[in-house]
């Protein structure tokens, strides 16, 4: 019962909260002048004209950070229930958590050694 109400609040919040930032945009739409021309609409690049396509290929390093983050993210999802229940568990839970985090740290050390954490 309470659970439903709490989430109903979040639901109404989502429905209402996006209107609030949209409101100034609508007001601005009404009051602002609109005189677009080709030069004004040009892509801004400090006065230089853009060369080629914007969606150029990017460094693979961004993707590697993304992958490492994903792995950590999922590990952390497992650790949240562990941390919640920790207060009523014994040393066995510590051992299990330690092993879990140790394996996680292992992966980090591997990434470090392979220079996957370097920006260059």
């Amino acid at each position: 019962m309470s659970l439903v109400n709490e989430w109903a609040f979040i639901g109404v919040f989502v429905a209402v909260a996006w209107v609030l930032p949209a409101l100034p945009l609508v007001v601005a739409r009404i009051f602002q002048p609109r005189k677009p021309n080709a030069i004004k609409m040009q892509t801004y690049e400090c006065g230089v004209e853009t060369v080629g396509d914007t969606w150029v290929q990017f460094k693979v390093q961004y993707y590697i950070y993304g992958l490492i983050f994903l792995v950590f993210d999922i590990e952390l999802i497992f650790l949240f229930p562990w941390a919640m229940a920790y207060n009523r568990l014994d040393f066995f839970a510590f051992g299990a958590g330690f092993l879990f985090i140790f394996l996680l740290a292992d992966a980090l050390i591997y990434a470090w050694r392979k220079n996957a954490l370097e920006w260059a």
Binding site: L67, V71, E75, F78, W82, A85, D106, Y110
Partner: peptide, 28 residues
């Protein structure tokens, strides 16, 4: 909370819990 207790409270799901970590390490 009970999910966490099930993971590491008894010995029922400890192995899957650790294997999940191993799997993620392998994935990385």
């Amino acid at each position: 909370d009970e999910l966490g207790a099930a993971f590491v409270g008894g010995e029922d799901y400890v192995l899957p819990f650790e294997v999940a970590s191993l799997l993620l390490t392998g994935a990385m």
